[in-house]
Write a protein that binds this DNA or RNA. Structure first.
Lengths: 214, 214
DNA sequence: TTGAATACCAAGCGCTTGCTTGGTAGCGTT
DNA sequence: AACGCTACCAAGCAAGCGCTTGGTATTCAA
């Protein structure tokens, strides 16, 4: 799929995850992953994803970055604020990455596949960990924090709805298609391992596209 | 869809949830919901579903059925055993119900729709609560308990795979289609409310069928 | 040289958690 | 009437939890 000239062009345009992170940090919209706060957020994202929010203690988090549990509260006022911050940053990063992937697409079909692939990459932590938390641990967030992350998420969802509408998906209603996709994609976290040779994330995205936009 | 004579025949054949429960209780494969243990399992299913396993305390469970927290451990050896028992019973019940729904179907398409609708009904607690726990709280179960429930689940999944294979689903691989469906269907728990007029569970099942088996 | 700010440690507080223990009321059987 | 069994209560234990407090080392600006 795609000739090599086009692939080259895309490779040039595409920012690496690190470059994107740097850009967003410079904008002041993301925490520097090398700062203490950033390292804590990264550890939290990994642990919340692996063990779940409730089963991860602040002592676990502290041990992961080599400080004592009490010191955490110099950076965050509560454990829940850590979860909220992880969700915020993950939403912002995944949104920026998907937008850039979508914009690089020529056809509507290609754009939808870019969205699918981008979300799969986010779920499986190819650039930064923590995206799958957004679905799994949603109820662990207080009402207000939910509202806050939800507002951030709106533009992300708009990209999806536009892409689905343009791709003439089966079943009509883009909102329904998106809702089914959210579930289907996030659930891949518990069965699909990108390490498995035989099916890459790009392959999987193609298969899913074939079902939802035949 | 379907003429009224056929619908009548189905109505006669179909067991009500209560009748099915009674039959399974008589077989000794399900706990009598009127017994103390049964009432506890029902309360647990509801609370685990509403608040999540980790955020539901044994005191919550006890209060729900009007006993003290310590008395719980006359019926179960640990909180996790309650979760395991809920998952076991829910799996058995949903399996029996889906099997009977699938068998009542004439065509492969109809059979797949029956599976989709049956799982949607299970997820949204139309007969008994707790089915959505199977996906959401899977990681709260110990390794051994997971294995135990998994073994029970195998025949349930086989019904699905057969139905998907027979219905010539888009995308080919029935295992992949099933995995996407597991995610898509279980996620409906967090956005679809059967009370909403405008879209019934049967409608939703039809829409989903149209996407996955066009 | 001083002072404020930052990032962390050391210790532990108050509370909640799952679970235990010892006892008792009610009931069916002999 | 005596027994044993089931189902529960009353009380609380030990551990783990999120979080607080008071203090210290380092840094950097004035």
């Amino acid at each position: 799929m795609g000739n090599s000239a086009q692939e080259l062009a895309e490779a040039i345009e595409e920012l690496s995850p690190q470059e994107l992170i740097c850009a967003l940090v410079a904008q002041g919209v993301l925490t520097d992953p090398d700062s203490a706060r950033g390292r804590l957020l990264n550890a939290a994202a990994r642990l919340f994803e692996q063990k779940g929010y409730a089963r991860t203690t602040v002592r676990d988090l502290a041990a992961e970055i080599g400080i004592l549990s009490g010191s955490i509260f110099h950076h965050f006022s509560s454990k829940e604020q850590i979860l909220c911050a992880v969700m915020r940053e993950v939403t912002i990063f995944a949104g920026a990455r998907m937008r850039s992937a979508a914009e690089r697409s020529a056809s509507p079909q290609e754009r939808l596949k870019a969205c699918i692939q981008s979300e799969l990459e986010a779920i499986h932590g190819l650039a930064v960990p923590g995206f799958s938390i957004l679905v799994v641990e949603w109820r662990s967030l207080s009402e207000e924090s939910q509202q806050e992350v939800l507002r951030l998420r709106e533009e992300y969802e708009q990209i999806w709805l536009d892409a689905i509408s343009a791709a003439h998906c089966a079943g009509g209603d883009p909102a329904l298609v998106r809702r089914l996709l959210v579930g289907a994609l996030s659930h891949t976290y518990s069965w699909f391992k990108p390490r498995d040779n035989g099916l890459t994330i790009s392959d999987l995205a193609g298969r899913i596209l074939a079902i939802f936009a035949p």
